[in-house]
Amino acid sequence: MSANLHQNINSIDYMLGKILSDILVCISDKQFDIERSAFSKAILGVYNAVTFSRPLPSVVVEFRLDDTSVGQEIKSMEDNILSQIPKEVSGLKTPITYLLDELICNIQQHAKVTTGYSYAGYNSKSDSVEIVIADKGITIYGSYVDAQKHLELIGNSDACALNIAHKGYSTKNLPNAENRGYGISSSMQMVVEGLSGEFAILSGNALLVQLYNRKEILSLPQEIDFMGTMIIIRFPAQLPGDFDLYKYIS
């Protein structure tokens, strides 16, 4: 089952790597207004809103990070995805909720902002779930600096900060006593290995992409400097038969 899903996601003619490549070119050429999918509009729209203070596209929601609003936003995102999928997929809500919880809680904990940005949708062409969670906060690098943690590992590099975030290095004081520092790494593993999907993080001027058979961090040219963090996720809207959420939690 998993192998078939991997083949499905790889046969999609417009994969996440290509979408991101196209978006980089658009940013470079300042071609912001050309017609594109809702997912691409969301990624580009958040980039433009954070970087150039442009208005958000209608597909993106800005939400407050207080407890009540976070709960409402997560429900709204889930409903938005599940209501668009033409068939009921048993068990799909649970990993979606887990991912949204992890990623939005990360913003709450680390970004030092009061609002976040979200896009959640279903792409009928590729039969995939598409999610964007972003903030205009202090970036992952800034989070380590703010906590004065692991400075020797990150140097002055957004890419190095992304590297240790993916490894599970926490900015908190009790890394051996609490379940902290797993948010990004467990979410990424769940999406790519568990759900046969694709995962990317843009933070500062570094972009981490993990696809089925490839994981790398691009240190981007200076003209791209995203003053925040954006998580971009895409996975097939069908669960592999052997998917086990708890494998990625503990």
């Binding site: 490549s21 196209d22 980089l24 070119v25 940013i27 470079s28 590099s157 890419a159 190095c160 992304l162 590297n163 993916h166 972009l207 981490l208 994981k215 790398e216 961090i217 691009l218 240190s219 981007l220 040219p221 003209e223 791209i224």
Partner: peptide
């Protein structure tokens, strides 16, 4: 994770 330094947008794309 391998870090790839991209000097230009085209290279990253």
């Amino acid at each position: 994770v391998p870090i790839i330094n991209c000097a230009t947008i085209d290279q990253a794309a």
